[in-house]
Design a protein around this nucleic acid. Sequence first.
DNA 1: TATTTAAGGATAATCATTATGGATTTTAAA
DNA 2: TTTAAAATCCATAATGATTATCCTTAAATA
Lengths: 136, 136
Amino acid sequence: MDFKMKKFRDINLKLTPQRLAIFEYLDDNKSHPSAEDIYLEIRKKYPTISFATVYKTLEALKKQGLLLELTIDPERRRYDPGTEHHHHLICIDCKKIVDIHADFRVDVPEDAKGSFEMLGNHIEFYGLCPECKKKG
Amino acid sequence: MDFKMKKFRDINLKLTPQRLAIFEYLDDNKSHPSAEDIYLEIRKKYPTISFATVYKTLEALKKQGLLLELTIDPERRRYDPGTEHHHHLICIDCKKIVDIHADFRVDVPEDAKGSFEMLGNHIEFYGLCPECKKKG
DNA sequence: TATTTAAGGATAATCATTATGGATTTTAAA
DNA sequence: TTTAAAATCCATAATGATTATCCTTAAATA
């Protein structure tokens, strides 16, 4: 976290208590929270924080490449502080998201990609988590 | 298309001109249109059609498995009448989406998936399309 | 500590999507 | 055909997530 604080300063972002709280909450967070999840959590400590602050902080983190915005839950955006390349498994029922750290060979055949310049990939796995499977 | 019309009847959906127009537009459509794209197109022929009708028709098609709802463009939902399993390549600039029909082995290691019941997967490739690459 | 400059917070605006409800059209049956 | 029942249409309002605005306040730095 110290490491990240430094990065903040380096990039001309002011360090405020609200940002630090968001930062701490996200650090090592594997729950892929939505903006609302973050807002509700931080509000416990800073009851006057507004959604605007949350969104603006997320935007800043994204710009620095410290945060990934996931487009996997159709209902809302999810945020992932994970930094190395990985994939996701989502429960189609409760929408829980789990990281998948594994290396897959997924090279698009030349004829399929045309003259696209390929930059990256992301695999979404769909399934039922143990809890939801139990419920039926 | 006849084939799909039959399906419509089979499933107790009334055939209306608006629905037929949406249907025709989607048939063999590889452009992954948004609801607005569809609305704007159909409006040329049926100037009074409303967004509600578009969304309800899309919903009906989804329920029958004739249409896939893509959560790949963070700004809006895209629709894909493609029926067999395939993946997508999206231009990070213009958001164009291209189908990738290829078979990838992407089996999640046992330890990574826990006791999830795996149901499917979808690979998103990111890149720059030829047009956007040219523009820089 | 003073000055500059960005951030915070309240709130309004926007945009995609969903819900509502009365008028209209389709379907199916007489 | 004619008609009754049911589903659809469309206009519009409601919702919910995200973004923009604007004024006040706080952080950085000399």
